[in-house]
Amino acid sequence: MPITDPRLEQTDKSFWHGFTEFYDTHLPLKIEGKILEFGVFKGNSIRWLLAKFPEAMIHGADILPIQSEWPIDARVTYHMVDQDDETQVKSLLEHVGRGLQLVIEDGSHFPRHQSRCLRLGLDALEPGGTYVLEDIQTSHPAHSQYADEFGTALGQTSLSVLLAFEHLKRRGEALSQSTLATLGGGTHFTDVDIAKLFAQIASIDVYKRATLPSKCWKCGSSDYDYHSYRCGCGVDLIDEADSMSVVIRKA
Results as ranks from 00 to 15, higher is better:
residue 96 V to M: 03
residue 24 D to L: 11
residue 208 K to G: 14
residue 223 D to K: 13
residue 24 D to H: 14
residue 2 P to W: 09
residue 84 D to W: 01
residue 2 P to I: 14
residue 11 T to G: 11
residue 138 T to I: 03
residue 190 T to Y: 00
residue 26 H to R: 15
residue 245 S to D: 06
residue 199 A to H: 03
residue 224 Y to V: 13
residue 210 A to V: 13
residue 209 R to C: 15
residue 97 G to N: 01
residue 57 M to T: 09
residue 119 R to H: 01
residue 6 P to V: 12
residue 84 D to P: 02
residue 53 F to T: 07
residue 195 A to V: 05
residue 8 L to V: 10
residue 117 C to W: 00
residue 4 T to Q: 13
residue 84 D to L: 09
residue 20 T to R: 13
residue 11 T to A: 13
residue 194 I to F: 00
residue 156 Q to S: 06
residue 155 G to R: 05
residue 10 Q to C: 15
residue 36 L to E: 00
residue 243 S to Q: 12
residue 73 D to S: 11
residue 201 I to V: 06
residue 211 T to N: 12
residue 182 T to S: 10
residue 100 L to M: 01
residue 2 P to F: 11
residue 160 S to L: 09
residue 187 T to Q: 03
residue 158 S to V: 07
residue 103 V to Y: 00
residue 66 I to H: 08
residue 54 P to D: 08
residue 43 G to F: 04
residue 198 F to I: 04
residue 178 S to T: 10
residue 194 I to P: 04
residue 104 I to G: 06
residue 211 T to M: 14
residue 46 I to T: 03
residue 106 D to Y: 01
residue 89 V to W: 00
residue 25 T to C: 15
residue 54 P to G: 09
residue 77 T to K: 09
residue 139 S to V: 07
residue 158 S to D: 01
residue 172 G to Y: 05
residue 241 A to R: 01
residue 32 E to D: 07
residue 84 D to T: 09
residue 230 R to S: 12
residue 145 Q to V: 09
residue 33 G to L: 03
residue 69 E to H: 14
residue 46 I to R: 02
residue 146 Y to I: 06
residue 224 Y to G: 14
residue 143 H to N: 08
residue 91 S to T: 05
residue 212 L to W: 07
residue 227 H to L: 15
residue 171 R to W: 07
residue 47 R to N: 12
residue 27 L to A: 11
